[in-house]
């Protein structure tokens, strides 16, 4: 959405103006969230970080699909 609204007053020192038109009542919620995201300058891509647990879970599951293992051996490998 930032990409789109940036088309209005396409100069760095002038505020872009945009109006979101929700087409149904549920989109009101989505529009509200989008406006909040703009206010805090949030982007869709979350920042990358080390030690993410979802990556570990994915890895454990992936290994288990390959072959059975004992937790203790698995821990040693990690």
């Amino acid at each position: 959405m930032m990409q789109r609204i940036g088309r209005a007053n396409h100069r760095i020192d002038e505020a872009s103006r945009a109006v979101l038109v929700p087409a149904n009542r549920f989109e009101v919620l989505e529009c509200r969230v989008a406006i909040d995201a703009v206010a805090e300058n949030a982007q869709d891509t979350p920042p990358l970080r080390t030690g993410a647990l979802d990556v570990l879970a994915q890895h454990v599951l992936g290994c288990a699909c390959g072959e059975p293992f004992l937790p203790i051996n698995f821990m040693r490998k990690c």
Binding site: M1, M2, Q3, R4, S16, L20, C31
Partner: peptide, 14 residues
């Protein structure tokens, strides 16, 4: 000078 977006935006960036 104005952008109108019909429907909910599907992402904050794009």
């Amino acid at each position: 000078d104005l952008v109108i977006n019909i429907g909910a935006p599907k992402g904050a960036s794009r």
